[in-house]
């Protein structure tokens, strides 16, 4: 599944990084602790979080994540969106909670 297909199926908002929507998704990781993501997320995963600041994209880029989903209707900071465009890593949003979006994404990927 590509990030674009995930956006369609989960009705996600695309804030930035549209050029990366063809990235393949290998799984997901849900956490708001940046060192946890740094230590435990893996390449190609979708990161689900409520953190909206620029360091999120620094980590997404260093870990080569496929996309970031901001939960609970959170919007990215301007410099976060700008970096997502630079890195071509889609920055996405949902009004759903972390629990609900994680459940739906899990079902999409593994069932």
């Amino acid at each position: 599944m590509t990030a674009a297909e995930m956006v369609n199926k989960l009705d996600l908002q695309v804030f930035s990084g549209e050029k990366g929507l063809d990235r393949e998704i290998s799984g997901g990781y849900m956490s708001d602790l940046l060192s946890d993501v740094m230590g435990n997320a893996d390449e190609g995963q979708v990161w689900i979080t409520l953190q909206t600041h620029k360091n999120v994209m620094a980590i997404a880029s260093l870990k080569e994540l496929a996309a970031v989903i901001l939960v609970n209707g959170h919007k990215p900071d301007d410099d976060t969106a700008a970096q997502s465009n630079e890195e071509d890593i889609p920055l996405l949003g949902t009004s759903m909670s972390a629990f609900d979006i994680t459940g739906k994404l899990y079902e999409l990927i593994y069932k």
């Binding site: 602790l33 940046l34 060192s35 946890d36 740094m38 230590g39 953190q51 600041h53 360091n55």
Partner: peptide
């Protein structure tokens, strides 16, 4: 910001 969870140095060592 999600930093300062006390995982930095342990992550480095790991």
């Amino acid at each position: 910001m999600g930093f300062g969870a006390g995982m930095g140095l342990p992550n480095m060592k790991k």
